[in-house]
Nucleic acid binder design. Sequence first.
DNA 1: TATTGTTATACTCTATAACTATA
DNA 2: TATAGTTATAGAGTATAACAATA
Lengths: 133, 133
Amino acid sequence: MLQPFVRALIAAELPVLARHGISMWGYVVLNALDGGPARTQAALAQTIGADKTRIIATLDELQQAGLITREPDPADRRARLLSITQAGQQTRLAAQAEIQANENRILARLPAGDRQAFLRAAQTLSALPLDEI
Amino acid sequence: MLQPFVRALIAAELPVLARHGISMWGYVVLNALDGGPARTQAALAQTIGADKTRIIATLDELQQAGLITREPDPADRRARLLSITQAGQQTRLAAQAEIQANENRILARLPAGDRQAFLRAAQTLSALPLDEI
DNA sequence: TATTGTTATACTCTATAACTATA
DNA sequence: TATAGTTATAGAGTATAACAATA
C-alpha cells in the first residue's frame, strides 16, 4: 500500500539531490556514515538494506566527489574503511534541510501526534534486519 | 529510508499471495475494487498509484481466474466497467487475513499508540494524489 | 578454503510511444 | 480530434554468478 507513496516521494527528492550532486543511494550512504565509519562495504550495504554490489558505483561517485574516504584496512587489506568527510557532512546537511522541508509539507496533512508517531515508527521499522520481515 | 523496508515486506508477502493464486498488483486491485466498482481502467490505475499500462496483465489474470468482472460500458463502449466478484472477495479476505497476521507480528515491535498512528498515517499518505508529492 | 570487493550478465519492473476502437 | 484500452519496446533498477585479491 505504501509502495506508490514511497516511490513518488523518492521521485520528488531526486531533483533536490541532483542539485547537490548526489544520487538517492549516495544520500542514504552519507546518512549511514554520519552515524559512524563502516568497517567493510558489505556491512554498510547491510545497514542500509542494499545489496553489496549495488553500492559500489555509489561509493565510486562519493569518493571521487570527495564526500567520503575509502581506504584499505591496514589490518585486513581486503576490506575498505569508509568514512564521511567534512565536505560530505556539509552536502548531507544541505540536502537534508531541503528534503525534510518537503517531507514536512506532506506530513502537515497528518495530525501532530500521528506525524511524530509515524516518524518514530518509520525509523524503527527501517532499522529492522530485513530477514526478520 | 522506508524503501528497503517496504521492499522486504512485499517480498515476504509474495509467497502468501502466490498460495492464493494472485500477484501483488492483483491483491491491490482487489482491495481497490472492494471499495466499489471502477468506471474505467485508467481511473482504477490512478487510485492505486499505478500506470494504466501496468495493470492490464493483472486484470487479464484476475478476470480469467473469475475474481473480477470486466465488461464494456454500454454507455461508452471504449470503457470497461470493473467489479470484484464474490470469489474475488473471498480470495481477498483470505489473503488479507494472512498478510495482516504477518504485519501485526512486525508492528508488534512498536508501542501500541505508535502502531495505530502509523497505520492511520500510512493509509492517509498512500491515499494522496501522487502529483501532490 | 573462506571472505572482500569487483565485474559481467540476466532478470524484473516500469515508463514511453505507437496502434486500434470508439466517441 | 480526443479518449480508453492495448501492445511493443526501451530503460532503469536489481539480483545472481563468476572472478581477482587477500586472509
